[in-house]
């Protein structure tokens, strides 16, 4: 049992309990007794099954190797584990932190079993032309990303030895600045068509990475930031990208206004509450939570108080029950 570390008073406890029970009753109809633990045997109803992830064969019997939920798709049987590290699929949008700048590549921490590699050759170079990467480009790698930078990229391929290749061949990928990074459990993020969201009413970019890293930052127009960087870099010395980016701020006169900062914090806190409660995180749910906090006239810091957790749990129960009603 995973307990929330909250100090709830008696009524709040009961309200949270009822909300969670409601959620349980809503989901229990669809998947009764399909949760398994390690070494539980999986019932097989037909011949010629394919065993997928999280299963293993033991003397003709199919057993689970992880805790999770059994999924059956035609003949394929696999166990979908809940709490585990990110399992990448080609095309996933991920956010990572640069750990190391190595030869022709960056090493990114993306909550995977190994560090992912982003090759210099699978990056869009600032000038935007397709050409061979020269030794000069390699020397200038730190002007694009340095250690501890946050980078948004796409999974290109994963190899047999477990290593993972990323690519960033688009203007929407690249360095993330002026915002907050939140880490949630990867199982809470579903693969969608859209992972980049521009919330116009708040002036904010929301990137929900498949690896459970969520970026909430000030909205930036998709423009060639790197061209600007490069222009600055060519004027100054290479390697002080921090200063150059600060200069960009100064020149444009763009600093993050207070209101945007508050919006970032509000959305970030909504994500924090949702992930602490273990609710799946989508753009709609995040916005609903933010709206709830706005209608309740709560301050940003009050969103992390126990009362708001209970309110979010109740509204989530309400939302899901209305969804199931609509289906019928």
């Amino acid at each position: 049992m995973r307990n929330l570390q909250l100090s709830l008073n008696q009524t709040q406890k009961i309200r949270l309990q009822t909300a969670l029970e409601k959620l349980e009753s809503l989901s229990s109809k669809s998947n009764a007794n399909s949760t398994l633990t390690v070494a539980d045997s999986i019932p097989i109803y037909e011949e010629g099954i394919l065993k997928g992830h999280g299963t293993s064969d033991r003397k003709g019997e199919l057993v689970a190797t992880v805790c999770g939920v059994v999924e059956r798709i035609n003949k394929l049987i696999y166990v979908r584990s809940l709490r585990s590290r990110f399992k990448p699929e080609t095309g996933d949008i991920v956010i990572g932190r640069v750990i190391e700048v190595a030869q022709k590549r960056w090493k990114l921490e993306i909550n995977f079993t190994q560090d992912a590699t982003l090759m210099l050759s699978s990056m869009n170079l600032p000038d935007g032309i397709q050409r061979r990467r020269t030794a000069m480009d390699e020397l200038n790698m730190r002007s694009i990303f340095t250690e501890n930078d946050l980078v948004c990229a796409e999974v290109r391929s994963s190899h047999n030895d477990g290593s993972l290749q990323l690519q960033a061949r688009n203007q929407k990928y690249g360095k993330l600045e002026k915002g907050q990074l939140l880490t949630v459990e990867p199982y809470l993020v579903k693969r969608r068509k859209q992972h980049f969201h521009h919330l116009e009413q708040y002036g904010i970019d929301l990137i929900i990475g498949c690896n459970g890293f969520i970026w909430v930052g000030e909205h930036v127009e998709v423009r060639d930031i790197m061209v600007l960087d490069q222009a600055n870099d060519s004027e100054q010395q290479i390697g002080n990208s921090d200063r150059s980016s600060m200069d960009v701020d100064g020149q444009d006169g763009t600093f993050t206004p207070l209101e945007t900062r508050q919006n970032i914090c509000r959305i970030a806190n909504a994500v924090r509450v949702l992930s602490a409660l273990g609710f799946s995180i989508t753009m709609e749910v995040i916005l609903e939570t933010v709206n709830l906090s706005n209608t309740m006239n709560l301050d940003i810091h009050e969103m992390l108080g126990s009362e708001f957790y209970v309110l979010v749990a109740e509204s989530e129960a309400e939302r899901r029950s209305s969804l199931t009603k609509r289906k019928r």
Partner: peptide, 14 residues
């Protein structure tokens, strides 16, 4: 473990 997994699953929802 079963109790924990069940809880995680129903909280996450479908």
């Amino acid at each position: 473990l079963v109790e924990n997994t069940k809880q995680l699953e129903y909280r996450r929802g479908s």
